[in-house]
C-alpha cells in the first residue's frame, strides 16, 4: 500500500496534462487583441506616417477625394452602370438609410428616436450640388455626420453617390416627362 500515493500522483498528473491549452492560446496576437507592450494597449500598430500600400498612392484625386484642385468634381470618375447603382442601393440601405431614410427624405428610424433630422435630398439646393460634394460628405462627414471613409471603401462611396442621384431623380420627375406607358401605370395606381 506504500505505492498508492505515488500512483495517485502520477495518475493525477497524467490527467492534468489534458488541461494545457498551449495550442489553443498560441503566443501570437490575433486581430484587435490587447497587449501591455504598448501604451495604447493595442497589438495592432498604426502605420508609420507616409506609408503607402502598393497601388494606393491615390494620385487620382478625382477618384479618391472627389476633387480636382480645390473644386468638387461634377462628373463621376468612372462609368456608372446598372450594377454600380444596384451596389449603391445595397450600401445606401445599410449605411445611410438609418438616418436619411430609404428614400432620402431625412426620415430614417434613428431620426424617430431623437437624432437631429438630416436635410432631405429633395431640395433644389441639394439637387444642384455636384457629385463630388456628395462623395465628399460621405468621405469626410458634414456637420454632425461622421466620416464614413473607414467603413465604406472608395468605390462603394461613389456607388452610393450614384444612388443618391437616382433617389433625387425618383422624387423629381414631371408627369410630362414620363413615357405613355409609365403614365398609364401611374394613372392606374391612383
Amino acid at each position: 500500500m506504500k505505492r498508492l500515493p505515488w500512483l495517485l500522483l502520477i495518475g493525477g498528473s497524467m490527467l492534468m496534462m489534458g488541461c494545457r491549452q498551449d495550442m489553443h492560446d498560441q503566443p501570437r496576437f490575433r486581430l484587435n487583441a490587447a497587449t501591455d507592450l504598448f501604451g495604447d494597449r493595442r497589438a495592432a500598430r498604426p502605420l508609420v506616417q507616409g506609408t503607402v500600400a502598393r497601388g494606393m498612392l491615390k494620385t487620382d484625386t478625382a477618384l479618391w477625394s472627389g476633387k480636382v484642385g480645390n473644386k468638387n468634381v461634377d462628373q463621376f470618375p468612372f462609368p456608372i452602370t446598372r450594377e454600380v447603382i444596384e451596389r449603391g442601393r445595397d450600401r445606401y440601405n445599410i449605411f445611410c438609410s438609418p438616418c436619411h431614410g430609404l428614400t432620402g427624405h431625412g426620415d430614417g428610424m434613428i431620426v424617430s428616436r431623437g437624432l437631429k433630422k438630416p436635410p432631405s435630398y429633395h431640395t433644389d439646393a441639394l439637387r444642384e450640388q455636384s457629385v463630388g460634394h456628395i462623395y465628399n460628405v460621405i468621405t469626410n462627414g458634414n456637420g454632425s455626420m461622421m466620416s464614413y471613409a473607414s467603413r465604406i471603401p472608395m468605390r462603394d462611396r461613389w456607388a452610393i453617390t450614384a444612388y443618391v442621384r437616382v433617389l433625387q431623380q425618383s422624387q423629381n420627375v414631371k408627369v410630362s416627362e414620363l413615357t405613355a406607358e409609365e403614365r398609364r401605370k401611374l394613372e392606374g395606381a391612383q
Binding site: L31, I110, G114, K116, M145, R151
Partner: peptide, 25 residues
C-alpha cells in the same frame, strides 16, 4: 461589422461608429 463581406474578420465597430449616432442621441 463592415468587413464581414471582404475579410476573414467581420470587424468590430470603431468608437467612431458608435459616436455616429451617440454623439447626438
Amino acid at each position: 461589422h463592415t468587413t464581414v463581406e471582404r475579410t476573414a474578420s467581420a470587424g468590430m465597430p470603431t468608437t467612431e461608429t458608435c459616436m455616429s449616432c451617440h454623439s447626438m442621441i
